[in-house]
Computed example of a mutant assay.
Amino acid sequence: MNLSYTSSQKAIHWVVFVLVIGLYVLTYLADIFPRASPGRAFVWWFHVSFGLLLFALVVMRVGLRLTLGTPGLPQEMSELERWVAKIAHLMLYALLVAIPVLGILLTWYRGDALSFFGLFTIPAPVSADSATARTIRELHSLCANLILILAGLHAAAALWHHYVRRDDVLKRMLPGTSGS
């Protein structure tokens, strides 16, 4: 049984990982600049653009998952481990969809258009509403914090499988490996 993901699935996985971390860092980088400053606006422009890229990659990743499925899990994994892995992946996917959707809604409810690196712009289809924007911002931030926690647990589990269980769970997603 093939336990490895395709090279495209692996590439998207790692690019999504880098984007999630990078987007989180950009939120703190924006705080270096005063409100309404060009520097802060520039950082948020990057945040929105990379957030849209994240959303596109997540859509591609979900499409690949639905088309190609997932490799089987090692037989040594207990039913509880399999169940926890499925729930964790479902939660990661839900957050990876929710965070950019909330970010898009936040941008629009702030009264701003979405710009993807200046290549195209999508005007806000809703009127600016600061109360709604505040609520969405809180949900967006909560989900961003949750994904970092869950991704950390996900990484810890992969490392545990690799170094303690000594199985091929981590190798399934490493570039240049084929699992068993």
Rank of each mutant, 00 (worst) to 15 (best):
L106I: 13
M1S: 15
R35P: 03
Q9G: 02
V97Q: 02
P175K: 15
W160C: 12
L53W: 14
R172C: 06
P123W: 02
L119F: 14
H47A: 13
V20G: 04
L105D: 03
L119T: 04
S4F: 01
V58L: 05
I87M: 04
S127W: 04
T70E: 07
L114C: 09
S115K: 06
L106K: 07
A144R: 00
T27S: 08
G179S: 14
I87N: 10
L159K: 00
F120Q: 03
A88G: 15
N145K: 09
L102S: 14
Q9R: 02
I12N: 10
V97W: 05
W108T: 07
L68Q: 14
W44M: 14
M91E: 04
D168K: 12
F46Q: 13
S7M: 07
W108Y: 07
L139W: 08
A157D: 02
Y28R: 03
P123L: 09
I32Q: 11
A133V: 06
P100D: 11
Y93E: 01
W160A: 08
V101Y: 10
T27N: 15
V97F: 09
D167L: 15
R134W: 04
F33D: 09
P34S: 13
G51Y: 00
Y5G: 02
T121C: 14
V169P: 01
N2F: 15
K86P: 06
S37P: 06
C143N: 02
I104A: 15
L29H: 01
I147W: 07
E76C: 08
A98Y: 01
F42G: 05
F42K: 02
A158Q: 06
L96H: 11
H140Y: 05
D112H: 06
T177S: 13
G152Y: 04
N2I: 15
C143F: 03
R137V: 15
R110W: 09
L119I: 06
S130N: 01
W108C: 10
L148K: 03
L106H: 12
A157W: 05
S37F: 13
S141Q: 13
R137W: 15
R35A: 06
M1R: 15
A131E: 11
S141K: 13
L114R: 04
M1T: 11
G111V: 06
V97C: 08
A124W: 08
D31W: 05
V18G: 15
Y5P: 08
L90W: 05
P34F: 02
P100Q: 04
M1C: 05
A98M: 00
S178I: 13
K171S: 07
R172F: 02
I104L: 11
